[in-house]
Write a protein that binds this DNA or RNA. Sequence first.
DNA 1: CAGGTTTTCGCCCATTGGTCGAAAACTACT
DNA 2: AGTAGTTTTCGACCAATGGGCGAAAACCTG
Lengths: 232, 232
Amino acid sequence: MFPAYPHEVLAVVLTVREGRLQVLLWQRAQAPYAGRWALPGGGVREDQRLKEALAEHLAAKVHVDDLAWREQVATHSKVDRDPRARVLATGYLGLVPSDVDPTLPDDTAWHLVDALPPLAFDHGDFVSAAVDRLRAKLSYTNIAFALAPHDFTIATLRGVVTAALGYDVTATNLTRVMTRRQMIEPTGRTRSHSSAGGRPATEYRFCDRTLTVTDPFAVLRPPRGGHDEQQR
Amino acid sequence: MFPAYPHEVLAVVLTVREGRLQVLLWQRAQAPYAGRWALPGGGVREDQRLKEALAEHLAAKVHVDDLAWREQVATHSKVDRDPRARVLATGYLGLVPSDVDPTLPDDTAWHLVDALPPLAFDHGDFVSAAVDRLRAKLSYTNIAFALAPHDFTIATLRGVVTAALGYDVTATNLTRVMTRRQMIEPTGRTRSHSSAGGRPATEYRFCDRTLTVTDPFAVLRPPRGGHDEQQR
DNA sequence: CAGGTTTTCGCCCATTGGTCGAAAACTACT
DNA sequence: AGTAGTTTTCGACCAATGGGCGAAAACCTG
């Protein structure tokens, strides 16, 4: 039928660690690109779908169920992206909550997203695409649920969001917006900080831990009277 | 190295025709799915990237330069998505302006997106994904430039947007929003309708014919004073 | 209980979108 | 020419959403 190519999946696993957005990389021991850092991933078996292959390869690096979110980002096809042979690659975005700390193999480590070493192959492209995707979605979806702990204070959430976006967000706005959008709700509990004083913070959680989008995208909203009537 | 698979590209070419959103399909003559409608596309040669393969296969159906926009949407990998053999498929969204009317081969035709016949393979999934993508982008990008004629009246634009979204949009809002976002600008000319009277409409064009996003995504905007300072 | 700290809440403002109706600009007919 | 009909455009008004700021609340420590 058509010519066939090896196909690999690559995972861009992001998390917030020490107040910074980080990506999971492992250091290659062998050529090509020996010594360079690369994304976890690998080939796809005959009986696997892409996401299954991803899970399998990822299991070698982190517990797969540490991933609170996973979505496909893009497939790259440059002919010489791998010097050995032509390999197509599909990249995924994966998110790990900031309070989950998987034990990593020796060759694997978190790296600051905004201070990456040169990566192997075209993996740098995958990282930037995934980071862009995350940042965009942070603004109009509740995807932060996959980066924040299950229960959290506004200060914590602010830290996570700030780190992921790369710029400051005020606690006031964050609270107002997230609650107005009905993304987060108080658990009822409250949390005192360990050291120093300060009013105890109310504990929040995400109402819904599935991806939901908000559309303040006015322009294009059906008119009020519209009982989902037929157009034209 | 890794097992290899044939890989195909599929094009979901959308346009607005007769006030409705339509997709380009061709009717299969041979098994499997003989008689069913399918998306244009095909295999990827050794020396091609995905987008190049797409252009080549599409050339058999429409003039490739009729496409005002093209973007990758997703790669599907279900093991039995093709009964003959395992084939991975990457779907693209393509847009043709409403005033461009390519001559189509005999087996090819436009179909109403919201009244599709059963499609071959998993092509239906590709169509819905592409339509969703288009609708989302219509709201927060200027992607309408790829659906509307180069120069247009507000009435025309409204028709295109209404058709693509599937619900009504008021002319007043459309004008205000699109101009406020600096997406469209008057050409200076004006257009009288053929029949009937009526005030002549001012002619507009898109300021920029490259994809630009607007982010009314408040929550997450850097504070005003922020001279792009370091976070932390 | 005073001082320091952190969180929360309320007030005010700017921007954006939604609705509606009047005015503008044109054609056609008497 | 004047009037009726049609389509577009513009302005006024309203609602919702964010952003900024400062006061009040709630806690800890000495």
